[in-house]
Design a protein around this nucleic acid. Sequence first.
DNA 1: CGAAAGGTTGACAATGCTCAACAACTGTGG
DNA 2: CCACAGTTGTTGAGCATTGTCAACCTTTCG
Lengths: 246, 246
Amino acid sequence: MTQPADRPALSHLISDPMPCSAHCPMARLCMEGGLSRQRTVRLRKGQSLYLLGDPVVALYAIRVGTVKTHVTTGDGRTQVVGFHFPGDMVGLDSVALPRYASYATALEDTKLCLIPVALVSAATKATPVLGNELFLALDQQAQRARALQTMLALMTAEERLVTFLLWIADGFAARGFSSSEFILRMSREEIGSYIGLTLETVSRQFSRLDDSGLIRVRHRRVELLDKPALRAIAGRPTICAAGAMP
Amino acid sequence: MTQPADRPALSHLISDPMPCSAHCPMARLCMEGGLSRQRTVRLRKGQSLYLLGDPVVALYAIRVGTVKTHVTTGDGRTQVVGFHFPGDMVGLDSVALPRYASYATALEDTKLCLIPVALVSAATKATPVLGNELFLALDQQAQRARALQTMLALMTAEERLVTFLLWIADGFAARGFSSSEFILRMSREEIGSYIGLTLETVSRQFSRLDDSGLIRVRHRRVELLDKPALRAIAGRPTICAAGAMP
DNA sequence: CGAAAGGTTGACAATGCTCAACAACTGTGG
DNA sequence: CCACAGTTGTTGAGCATTGTCAACCTTTCG
């Protein structure tokens, strides 16, 4: 379990301004908002982007890498509240607040775009469309939260893991990567925390799915062999429409 | 279980325009946005305000009564995703979408303010502060969703029910009502659906808490006898700050 | 008043958790 | 390149909490 211990001196991680690449998810905000040059943040595996309670100074867009957001309970356990992949925004859930409501930690070496909140405010004021953009993004997060709520409330261990894998797969598909073969960037414990199971149960369900031939697992490499069958298992619950990966 | 069956003809439920009362939660939006006269919607117990998939035509602010929002799973079960009390906004989660993402059903006779989305858009354009207002409200919903996620992922049945009761109590306290004695407007089944338990488990946990003297329950009337002890039970999990009732 | 809905309680089964041992992988330094 | 330590993942046995099924009771409402 990676504790949100080591907070890097942010200034050391920020490289010189550089132009936004065309495929940056925030390109639209950057361009239209006159934020044509952004700062990049680099995190190494295990480093924190921000801590719960930190003043909200920026929004981040992931360029490469994976980030988890998490909170801690009174008795010390960690609860993962989200996984974030290239193209996702991080820090959005706290954008209207003075302080971050979670920790954000890199699961692997990660590069992010830093967008100061001041610039976001200015840009949205100048270009109302952008406000709408953020509004939509926030709304999408709410959608994801609802889907997760339904999963946690009424799915079995198997259904949860299959649903999780399909979310991951759909997310990768939307980003143009293989959706039937991928490497998980998070541990069994982190998966379990996210979907409300212990790491042992997650491991056992992986093995069971492997035994039944629906997937092929070796450690963190996963191959989905029979997606229709998997969708049948996960597909019972709510109308999760074309929602992206929570 | 109240199925989202009977959709009333909305036009029959709308009364004549009337001035916003001073304590209306949306007073600020109404006034500043030039929406000084609103329409009121009346729902009887069990009637639906909107159905999942309906085009989003309005936001609603509850004046009196209680509303649940819910979705249905592929295999027919119902999942309650939220309870909403006087002062709460309903429909907000879908405001950026073309169609509602859940059902909204009255748990008792309920009066609501109807705010057409067109007016909301116009008002926010004219008065950017209002956009911020909505932004904050949406963000608050996200907070609530996160708290619920943590509850569902790592709390026991007892902890869940106690947490739920304290949420209700805090919500009533914030509205100036008694926070130690109240009547639940929802059934055991609806509570269970919301906090991820069966109705039998909810009932048993109520009885256990009653036996141990922490609360007094008779059907839907609940009295919290030892709030410190209750908070100790619920208090383990996440930093749930001063968040309102989910 | 009677029917229907909602709530309680019991017995039993089962899913998932705990504890524990072991195996496989990662990465670090010799 | 190998050996080691540390981390991560797997698997087993037993147990506890919660779900299931069922009977019965209470309240509500027509």
